[in-house]
Design a protein around this nucleic acid. Structure first.
Lengths: 206, 206, 206, 206
DNA sequence: CATGAATGAGGGTTCATTCAT
DNA sequence: AATGAATGAACCCTCATTCAT
């Protein structure tokens, strides 16, 4: 019997109804963002997070059942944001491929650039349980499906839309992550432009 | 005054001249590779590594001043191997871009695929000190320079060789890392081909 | 100077006169019984008890000054019940020893069998402060005195009534406790019969 | 699939071969005995035990995988001692029942009286996992079997040897435990004598 | 009086590192 | 040099108790 995709262990402790509690949860996540970004995962201790949130550890544990669930919440937030951005960027069905790609890359860069270090901790340095990886995979798969459908409509002559779509999605995603992870001071605008050209060139019929 | 790029803490304890010592160091690194690949960074304890190497912890610490220096040695080995492969793949100056790219991607995929899990631990899960990141950056920069020079010779009309070179290098590198990190069972051969097409399409004059 | 036999820490907060308060106290004790029986002492947290009582922890602490005072109240209830049963069983002064013993054992078994697990928590698993132990001792001593008086009347020839009485009381009590604590599915009726025979044989003049 | 009767969790970490290690393990158990006897189970912290043993916590955890395994070792020692005593006391097959009972009670009292408080912690206050309870039950069952066999040989006329044997064993055991648990300053010798008479009277044909 | 969020001391446990043998 | 027992700081987490609302 496989575990449910999102285990209880990784869920916040209560779905808070009072504004006070909502607030506290948000404060903890804010603090966690800062602490993880500054200290990394291992040294981002629950005590430090509680401190940064202006709370005691005990309170923190009233909202999250364990350390990993805090991280999971952060990852989930990122996924939600990514989904939102992706939908917003692709809403306008008329646009040509190139502008679509440009929009997607632009918004992804924005999402990721907001806090590079945190992003690194979230997606590279920390243990990610299977359930979270599954959520990420789902997001990626839906992106692949979206691109593949577009390709099928636009270039009916080319086969293997799925592989191509997967390469496109992966390329964009990994380049953006790379930009974020890198310490190089790349100019986001130029970076976006080049990635767009890269993808456009790949998709252009030859 | 910045720290020297390669701090003492991360260096093996002695540059051993006796064959026995060289051997022991190699055995430790081998063991570390296995242990990190199997248990990850945090659970890859020095005791486990010593055990796997058939040594006592005490002895291990005669060869490496601390845990991170073992990791650093592993990363450094990986860098050396990458450099070797890169040089080998680009040695033949006559080849056209496309075959060059194909060769580079092929050899990189090979290097990385050898042990995905270890690679993940080395480059994602572990804390990498600045000095190591610097070494990696140097490797990347030399790759960029190499590609840029080629571009300048081949396509004197296009400007901004450096940015293009950087995108190429980054794209290849990040896609390969992505392949390695991913749990998807991508076929390496098709993957190589698509990356080659991606890069070739990007470089092709339009 | 010894502490007063019943320290303040172990007393309920107020001897409530209003029915409402009496009720609440009873509800808390009921809940505590359930919670201790289900979770044991250590895991029987005050929060769980409050929950089970349909109260907030804060309210619980208005009625009992601390966790142990709840336990103490439970123990005291048990003592009271035991006393009542003992008096009822021995009220009829005419009965011969054997039927007296049978009655006492029967009623004790009943009292204890009602909730084995709770009994175990109360008398084995939990820390019992000296004051409570003293109350228990008093109960036992009065039982010993009661039996000794009977013995003196019935068998004036035998000396050391007190020791014999103590053995009788202890034997009955410890065997009953043992039955309760045991996981063996002993039949209470046969058990009662054998204990009766044991005690009767002991007391029978030889 | 039932767990093995004695789980790994409760076993010492290594079966020590060097005298030094044997010694250290013994020192830890000694310290644990003192600490548990003084502070009880919950407040008998591993740090306190390590302290009392003149060790660091870390060392303690090299010998025992967790707190409960220390307790388990103590319980197991007690079981072993009980078994030894029982065998020694019943070795001489010729003796009459009364002297046999006297011997058994005497040796059991001795075993238990050595440290009443510790015994209480071990057998009442602490969580005993099923595997340990099973070991205790085995010991008791073998005692029951032993007595039952004797009864069958001596009093072939009486039926239900097993029940009687069980009552005898239980009575002796629980009375001894009771003596130990009690704070009363009972004289062990007289106590032994009375228990002997109790059991002898029970077994005597009427 | 009631509530339940907040507190924080304290517990069990791990593991990089040291050092006596 | 090698060994591996010993160290102890630091971590995650719990829960009796308090107190602002």
């Amino acid at each position: 019997m496989p575990k449910p995709a999102t285990e209880k262990r990784l869920r916040p402790r209560k779905t808070p109804r009072q504004t006070r509690a909502v607030d506290t949860q948000a404060r903890i996540l804010d603090a966690a963002r800062r602490v993880f970004a500054k200290h990394g995962y291992a040294a981002g201790t629950t005590n430090r997070i509680a401190d940064a949130a202006g709370l005691s550890v005990g309170s923190l544990y009233q909202y999250f059942p364990n350390k990993d669930s805090i991280l999971a919440a952060l990852v989930r937030e990122h996924i939600a944001e990514g989904t939102r951005e992706l939908l917003a960027a692709t809403r306008d069905a008329e646009a040509d491929f190139e502008s679509l790609v440009r929009r997607v890359v632009t918004s992804l860069v924005e999402v990721h650039a907001r806090d590079r270090r945190l992003h690194r901790v979230l997606f590279e340095e920390s243990p990610r349980p299977e359930s979270l990886r599954a959520e990420l995979r789902r997001l990626e798969e839906s992106a692949v499906a979206l691109v593949a459908a577009r390709l099928a409509a636009a270039l009916p002559t080319r086969p293997d839309h799925e592989l191509v779509a997967r390469i496109v999605v992966t390329a964009i995603e990994s380049l953006v992550h790379r930009l974020v992870a890198s310490d190089l001071p790349l100019d986001p605008r130029r970076f976006t432009e080049e990635v767009t050209r890269l993808v456009a060139g790949y998709l252009a019929p030859r």
